[in-house]
Design a protein around this nucleic acid. Structure first.
Length: 492
RNA sequence: GCCCCUGUCGUCUAGCCAGGUUAGGACAUCGCCCUUUCAAGGCGGCAGCACGGGUUCAAGUCCCGUCGGGGGCGCCA
């Protein structure tokens, strides 16, 4: 079993294309088949070499691996269409020689004119077949004399043609509605519908899973296979990925490309998991699945036929679950670039064991609040900074915070470092004075953290009593300093 | 304009092929519990077969039509 995915290097990888690649990957792996990456770069206007590298890295980041491709090689290369041009020309001329294709000299202007006329008459805008009757010898001479020409395929005009789609079942067409289409352009480059057939045949692809926008290309391609005496592969057409309004997911809906999801802090395994469930559901209740589990359960025949709306709240849930399954050291590693970006560290390597341990304890405290990796530095803020909320201090004033603050100040007077034992004895002393329960802990929380909610207070204090000697780029604010900050704000 | 695909809770879906289910699960939402806060977690609730015909004792499931959504009809892929 051989499958392929064939992106064009014309931009960043769209999640819809990533999903198509993923389904091909899952199906190939499930059946012990091979997956091929082919670069479709025959559109010289839009294809750019640098996008190929980006695309390869993005697919690798997602966790899709291929057995053959321009970077890995393989026995059926080359894997860039731009390196296979001689083959397309040879096959196109074969069709020409056998009378299954012909030269066409119509100019783009003439064709545009024809199209408009057909459309205005309510006819399908298909090519008229005008050049079909030019005798081959005459055509050949005109080409030899330097006249520009394309090669068109003589599309058979079967009234009822059908093929069996792996996902959708039988699909029928009236081929008399299809015109003779271009297989070789005047610049010598192949057109899409021709190049894929040649490539899929020579690369021995036997199942093509692609987007539903290719459904009506399928009869054209099957007819080329038949004209060449080749066996066509099986085809399966996936539905589209849609935005919240039900239209195809596009930039106006927000993020669409893999690199954007990466920079928003989504884990590749989470995005992979989510993408697999867009249009497909695992047979068991558990939806948080590893790549291995996805491969085990996936069945392309069970993929939904209708479009699937990309839902961030479910993606977020999947991501949160995948993060929750990671230990805190692993979370730190994954979040490195985000921690660097927010100025907490220069790099993970520079961190000594003590600082790493402290950071990992801090992560443990806020782990349940992390949805994406960008939340890591955000949630860590409470340990490093004193970013108070105005509302919390309003509350503090009303709840007699001044009394608590003064008591704390008095208690810690002269102490250089606040230890966890000091905290306990503070609580004990407060109790003797009748300060206890919510009346003590709520103001204490606001005084120490600047906020009225967040991490469990005892966890926070335990972590904050161990800040001495830490080597971060940004130094965590000590409990003492927090006391002073609170005082300033309370007096105001 | 013509052709093709598609329509189950707000969202992703199971169920349809082989007609009989209190139409199941997950996300979101709401409520309760847990919690000296917030989250997380646990428990529970709300919510759906696009519409209209037909076949049948019985239709989400089979048939026809309508409407809605999407795609295609390129010297783009």
């Amino acid at each position: 079993m051989r499958l392929r995915f064939a992106p064009s290097p014309t931009g960043y990888v769209h999640v819809g294309n990533a999903r198509t690649a993923l389904f091909n990957y899952l199906h190939a792996k499930k059946h012990g088949g091979k997956l091929i990456l082919r670069i479709e770069d025959t559109d010289i206007e839009r294809s750019k070499k640098e996008y190929e590298e980006i695309l390869i890295n993005d697919f690798k980041w997602l966790g899709i691996e291929w057995d053959e491709g321009p970077d890995t090689g393989g026995g059926y290369g080359p894997y860039r269409q731009s390196e296979r041009l001689d083959l397309y020309r040879e096959i196109a001329h074969k069709l020409l020689d056998e009378g299954k294709a012909y030269y066409c000299f119509c100019t783009p202007e003439e064709l545009e004119q024809e199209r408009k006329e057909a459309l205005s008459k309510g006819l399908p805008p298909k090519y008229s077949g005008k050049c079909r009757n030019i005798p081959p010898e005459v055509a050949k001479k005109r080409v030899e004399s330097g006249e520009k020409a394309v090669i068109r395929f003589k599309m058979p005009q079967d009234k009822d043609f059908s093929y069996n789609d792996v996902i959708r079942g039988k699909i029928s067409f009236d081929l008399s509605l299809f015109g003779d289409f271009v297989i070789l352009r005047s610049n010598g480059l192949p057109a899409y519908n021709f190049a894929v057939v040649v490539d899929d045949h020579y690369m021995k692809v036997d199942l093509v899973i692609r987007g539903e926008d290719h459904i009506s290309n399928t009869p054209k391609q099957i007819k080329i296979y038949e004209a060449l005496g080749w066996t066509p592969p099986e085809f399966g057409h996936l539905s589209m990925v849609l935005g919240p309004d039900g239209s195809p997911l596009s930039k106006r809906h927000g993020a669409t490309s893999l690199n954007q999801f990466k920079s928003m802090g989504y884990l590749p395994e989470a995005l992979l998991n989510y993408l697999a469930m867009l249009g497909w559901a695992p047979p068991e209740d558990n939806e948080i699945l590893s790549k291995e589990k996805l491969i085990k359960f996936f069945d392309v025949r069970k993929v939904s036929k209708s479009g699937a709306i990309f839902d961030y709240s479910k993606l977020n849930w999947v991501n949160r679950k995948h993060i929750a399954a990671l230990n805190s050291i692993e979370i730190i590693k994954r979040a490195e670039e985000f921690l660097v970006k927010e100025g907490y560290i220069n790099s993970l390597k520079e961190l000594d064991e003590m600082s790493l341990k402290w950071l990992s304890d801090a992560i443990d405290g806020i782990k349940t609040n992390i949805v994406t990796l960008v939340d890591v530095p955000e949630e860590l803020k409470i340990f490093f900074e004193y970013s108070h909320s105005k509302e919390a201090f309003e509350e503090l004033k009303e709840e007699g915070g001044e009394e608590v603050l003064n008591f704390m100040k008095e208690f810690f007077k002269g102490k250089g470092h606040i230890d966890i034992k000091d905290i306990y004895s503070l609580i004990g002393e407060a109790k003797k004075k009748g300060l206890k329960g919510k009346a003590l802990f709520h103001p204490m929380r606001i005084i120490f953290t600047g906020k009225s909610s967040g991490i469990e207070l005892d966890k926070f204090l335990e972590i904050m009593t161990k800040t001495e000697g830490l080597k971060f780029k940004k130094t965590p604010l000590s409990l003492k300093e927090r006391l002073e900050e609170a005082e300033k704000l309370l007096v105001k």
